[in-house]
């Protein structure tokens, strides 16, 4: 489920009076981050009613993460205490504790927590990945990159990690490496329009003649997979085809067709969503 689709389902569920439990479940499964909604459903995860059920603990963990997002540490501490008193120490609890340290800005301490987790279980992926985020937050980008590379040498089928590594490379300006990472992610998710969009952006940034053409390919691919809600790819396609017009491909018919297609598309979207800004479109 894409983020947009999920948020539509969520608002529908919030309106038509679905139970809080259903909403929480949707939030758990869908790629949505709505801590305020989770925290507002206190009855679901503070209630005494179904502590015997496993599902309750899923909700409690969810609430703990939401509490971290909203910096309401009382709720988070309460949840952690509840989890500890029932299950004792576990890697999931330790991850929560480490993330709280991160949230209050105690970066070194959180690193220690994750290292202890890894001592117990060197294959704990949660701890390995948290370490990367910690390093990234504290500005040690090259260390974070090295860490993530090491992680991906072992878990080389982790798509999210590949995307994160690509992001790290982009912030370091290492575009060829980032391209490699996104291609790796594409091997696993070849219908993910956002990945094609990212690749288009990178090639557009490289800005030479052949890269610009590749960027146009990728933007087009992204638009075929998602043409309705993809204005970024439209702009990409527009700008790349405009840039190609000044080169040796100036007379290419396909380039012209694509440019016309995307101009029409952009006009349609702008007329519908914000007619007043139609004149700002960089149309030629």
């Amino acid at each position: 489920m894409s983020t947009e689709a999920a948020s539509v389902v969520l608002s529908r569920k919030l309106e038509d009076g679905s139970t809080d439990g259903e909403v929480l479940e949707l939030l758990r499964l869908a790629p949505l981050r709505r801590p305020e909604v989770v925290l507002s459903m206190r009855k679901e995860w503070r209630g005494r009613r179904d502590r015997q059920k496993l599902r309750f603990w899923d909700k409690l963990e969810q609430a703990a993460f939401a509490a971290l997002d909203r910096a309401s540490f009382d709720d988070m501490d309460w949840a952690a205490r509840m989890i500890f008193s029932t299950f004792g120490s576990s890697w999931r609890l330790n991850r929560l504790i480490g993330m709280k340290r991160e949230a209050i800005g105690d970066i070194e301490e959180s690193m220690v927590v994750y290292e202890n987790m890894l001592e117990k279980d060197p294959n704990n992926r949660a701890a390995l990945k948290r370490q990367v985020t910690v390093l990234r937050t504290s500005g040690k980008l090259s260390e974070a990159t090295a860490h993530l590379c090491w992680y991906l040498k072992i878990y080389l089928s982790d798509v999210d990690a590949w995307c994160e590594l690509a992001d790290l490379y982009i912030s370091a300006g290492s575009y060829p490496q980032a391209i490699y990472c996104y291609n790796e992610a594409l091997l696993y998710e070849k219908s993910n329009w956002a990945l094609y969009l990212r690749l288009g952006d990178i090639y557009y940034t490289l800005a030479d003649e052949s890269s610009m053409l590749t960027a146009r390919h990728y933007y087009s691919k992204s638009l075929t997979l998602n043409s309705k809600h993809n204005v970024r790819a439209m702009y990409g396609l527009l700008l790349s085809s405009q840039a190609l017009e000044s080169g040796p491909r100036a007379q290419e018919l396909k380039n012209k067709n694509l440019k016309n297609w995307v101009q029409e598309a952009l006009k349609t979207v702008y007329k519908d969503k914000c007619p007043s800004k139609l004149s700002l479109l960089p149309l030629q």
């Binding site: 638009l223 075929t224 043409s227 396909k254 029409e264 349609t268």
Partner: peptide, 12 residues
Amino acid sequence: SAEDELLQIKFK
């Protein structure tokens, strides 16, 4: 080849 595919799409 996605470019040809894209040109077939009637965006409106």
